[in-house]
Amino acid sequence: MPKVSADKLEPGMRLARSVTRGRLLLIAKGTELTEEYIEKIRAMGISAVYIWGPSHPAIPKEEALAQLDRRFRFVGNRPYMDLLKEVVREHIENLYD
């Protein structure tokens, strides 16, 4: 779920998190952005909002997972490190789905 800065918003993007000010709901999660909404977001001085969709990782999945293995090369068998590695692996894989 990428965060997109207000000046890069385009009509048709869908909000992944509600836009709020304090406890006040301004635009609800799931709303499809129109020119009017984008104008409103910019006018309120909100710098960025969360948009549905993949975060576009910079490297291919296989490379990301190979790097993960390299980072854990010396510690994979230590207590709890296998658990941490598994959670991170799942998280990285999700970025590509």
């Binding site: 990301a64 993960l68 980072r71 854990f72 010396f74 941490l84 590695k85 998280h91």
Partner: peptide
């Protein structure tokens, strides 16, 4: 370091 975000001086967790 596990997630590979940023850099802290070495490539290991």
């Amino acid at each position: 370091r596990a997630e590979g975000l940023g850099f802290a001086g070495d490539p290991f967790v």
